[in-house]
Design a protein around this nucleic acid. Sequence first.
DNA 1: CATGCAGAC
DNA 2: TGTAGTCTGCATG
Length: 793
Amino acid sequence: MDNTKEKNNCKDDLLLRMGLNDNKAGMEGLDKEKINKIIMDATKGSRFYGNELKKEKQVNQRIESMMQQKAQITSQQLRKAQLQVDRLAMDLERNRNLNNTIVHVDMDAFYAAVEMRDNPELKDKPIAVGSMSMLSTSNYHARRFGVRAAMPGFIAKRLCPQLIIVPPNFDKYRAVSKEVKEILAEYDPNFMAVSLDEAYLNITQHLEERQSWPEDKRRYFSKTGNPIKIDSLTFDLAASNFYLLRLVKPTSIAPNTMLAKVCSDKNKPNGQYQIPPSRKAVMDFIKDLPIRKVSGIGKVTEKMLMALGIVTCMELYQQRALLSLLFSETSWHYFLHIALGLGSTNLARDGERKSMSVERTFSEISNTEEQYSLCQELCTELAHDLQKEGLKGRTVTVKLKNVDFEVKTRASTVLSTLSTAEEIFAVAKELLRTEVNAASPHPLRLRLMGVRISTFSNKDAKKHQQRGIIGFLQAGQRALSSPGCSVDRIDKTEFVKPSEIPHKKSFFDKKRSERLSNHQDTPRCEVVNQRALQTSQPFRAFRKMRESLETSENSNNCQTFTCPVCFREQEGVSLEAFNEHVDACLDGPSTSEDSKMPSYSQASSTAAGQKEDASHSIPPCEHCDYEDGEVESVDGADGAETVGQSLTAVSADTTGSNHSKEEHSDAPDQSCPIPLANEAVRMLSEQESIWPCTDDVVTGQALVCPVCNLEQKTSDLTLFNVHVDICLNKGIIQELRNNEANSVSQPKESSRSAGRLQKAAGRTKRLGQRTKWSTSKKTKPQSPRHTLDVFFK
DNA sequence: CATGCAGAC
DNA sequence: TGTAGTCTGCATG
């Protein structure tokens, strides 16, 4: 816009006035304290802030209930949970798939980068893309002032008065994005776009094909002319299109999407980062990784886990049993995947759209008439979008946010399918009306209104069902015949189908479901694939290539970079050194940035005290089949939760003597009292320990079972742990029997707990419901729900 | 099915 | 003056 240029011209003045014009020396910017103060000053006392506080309290309450629940957990429950969790962990471990190379491409500060490209004037100035009320991104210059994405522009302006706020130009970004995606497609035609500036590629096959390329074709030259020979995507891209060298920077290569995503973030703003396809490499990478870095773990989850003393992935692993008792099945499964460094290895096709919505924020509207007409406008817009994709839905949801930022949604599902503005509005109007009536005689003081439509009619449902089995077989074949090929994920209800919805270059291109944190890979399929793969011809080639990849450094190629913050060239530095430099630049004059979390190692060691009972951090046995044998009977014996104080003590000892030993996996031991299937032993001997794969080695030490007190002739920690687990269970069973023998009436307490345990037991097979610690909520005045079918007769 | 919440970009 | 818009998935009643 025109005022952009105007501001541009003022820039020097502003800088002078601020005494911050020392651009070349890279001295401008604000330190963290100042930034926080300015943000606070701008925030405090606002209605927004009030709502933030309210939300925070709710979270704290949730945490409190969770802690109460935790306090009631007995060591038996915990041990039982441990077995159950470890059984899953074992399964997951067995199916770990390191055969894919997944790349995550992230275009840093994408919108800002495009704007700077198109207007060189902006290049050395702090800019942000967005509006006065919200920014979507900022360039590195602006970041030094604390100007970040998701920050309202007016606050950003206080942090950095010379900040240039460029209104977003989505058509342009889409165009550039498309350009980039065309290149990405050369590496993986089935790559998955997450948004305009983010994508995942499975380059497994590409790498394989590349093996047969002539040498010179695999050689690329960087800007400075230094030959770089590296089979890494980024440099490739750089060769294809120099512009991309600046755009497609944070890039990562890893065995699955979760890791790929994390490590592309790790080396921002200039990172190519690779996790080699070995379990040890994965575990080493994960070990101290703050869980918050993982996609899917947000502010709230972080805080709750922090309350349990969990900050890093290793701690997440250690507390897995506890987590399985405190969180829903879905959640703890997810956590376990993270803790093991697992993620999807196949890039799921875009699913069908589930909903479509329009919403708008405005300055207060409390006039009812206005509200209705606004609603109507939104419906019209929505209907328009809906028709573009030829969709019809049956559920209409109205969203209202009042001036105190409190959000409410009201939904209604009708029998007929809706697509026109009139149809939608007819439903939405009634929803709005009930809210208006409920509030009367006071008016609704709104700051936002939205309308969403969902429950799309699924015309192709039959087709999909038919395709189910065929699709499955095809997927299987593909997997067997071509190693790099991804297996379609199997959905709960139906198989993933090739996109059939006639979607245009949808406006919503960016937000297709992709199941990043898809922890529901289908183990069975993967087992098959993996085994087939390992014996297949291509697999060996693979292996080879992989090893070479493993040794090829991502960061040791010295070259010349230009710091995006201070704009000085950094010559002949390694990537790491360069990134350090950028970090330092970003950190500004003084303190470190908040993205560098407070020393987690400290956090974890101080939290260790609280963890005692919870952390039974022995890695699970990988191949012992818990289904057979005595464990099952323990499952059946849930009722007894008051049992076994002595065992508690034992368990604590066990914990003390636990992990951090590197096993010698070449010594599967016959003296382990557990019947291990031959195959399992074989596989086991080929694998490293589950956790941790680090340097804390205790060699040559006899392992003495803390339960039966007998020395175990194994140096294999997993086997040893299986032994201990079994011993423990024997103990529990014994105690249960004793208890039964002299059982009096159970205290009331335990019947409640028994119920809880029962639930936990249920999870084994069918898996239970979420243990809930939602706060006792103030009961809200329920607005009556109407069926609006009457309007569509 | 309705509602609220968390999370991602 | 002033804190977005779209979408997905989970939990729960």
